[in-house]
């Protein structure tokens, strides 16, 4: 893993679109979450983008799989893909104890601030200076919406420092474990599970 200077731009790594399309990361998160969903579960996919993870979990037997995204373009696309969707900020517009599983494939790539905020796609990819611009707020707020026994499943990259992410979760009173890991060019993708201690 280099220091970032020889990495291609975010858009080059992920293809140029205005709504993030399912890639290796969404796929790993969807496959991992699919194994954990139980018939009758209510599931939320945060930053749902095209709605791919939510649709996969609905297909896997979730009673209800809802998406939330801050981008109006993503909301439209998820809705067109048949996913019940809410425009909102992370888990803020949802009731306490509402979900058995909350999935999140956040923008996790560390990005120097001078490269940020051109458009909705950049917003979907950039994790800020440390890659945790939305990772940390998610960990601060997800516990409220988890049903008893519920869990958060988040995809992060080795570039995001999964150990630091887990340490921050612990400060928020969340236990964690690593459920899956996959090597890719530039990074390893990891699925972390968070649950109440």
């Amino acid at each position: 893993m280099g220091d970032g200077e020889d990495r291609p731009s975010l858009a080059d790594q992920r293809g140029v679109e205005s709504v993030y399309q399912p890639a290796e990361d969404s796929d790993l998160l969807a496959r991992t979450a699919r194994e954990r969903v139980e018939a009758g579960d209510t599931v939320l996919d945060v930053g749902t983008g095209s709605g791919y993870v939510a649709a996969t979990l609905a297909d896997a037997g979730a009673r209800r799989a809802v998406g939330v995204d801050v981008s109006p373009l993503a909301c439209r696309e998820a809705a067109d893909n048949g996913v019940p969707v809410v425009r909102g900020d992370l888990v803020e517009p949802f009731q306490r104890d509402a979900f058995d599983i909350v999935t999140f494939n956040p923008p996790y790539l560390p990005t120097p601030s001078e490269q940020e905020w051109d458009d909705w796609m950049e917003h979907a990819l950039s994790g800020g200076d440390d890659g945790r611009r939305l990772v940390d707020p998610f960990l601060e707020t997800v516990e409220r919406v988890l049903a008893p026994g519920g869990e958060g499943l988040m995809l992060v990259s080795s570039l995001t420092d999964p150990d630091a992410v887990r340490a921050y979760a612990s400060e928020q009173g969340l236990a964690s474990e690593q459920l899956a890991s996959e090597k890719h060019p530039y990074e390893a993708l990891v699925v972390l599970r968070f649950y109440r201690v």
């Binding site: 439209r76 425009r87 909102g88 517009p93 905020w117 917003h123």
Partner: peptide, 18 residues
């Protein structure tokens, strides 16, 4: 609007991406 509830806080509603 268009079947999608917009539950962003009012101060985030009209923001460009950021």
């Amino acid at each position: 609007e268009d079947g999608i509830p917009n539950l962003l806080p009012p101060d985030m509603r009209d923001e460009a991406p950021a």
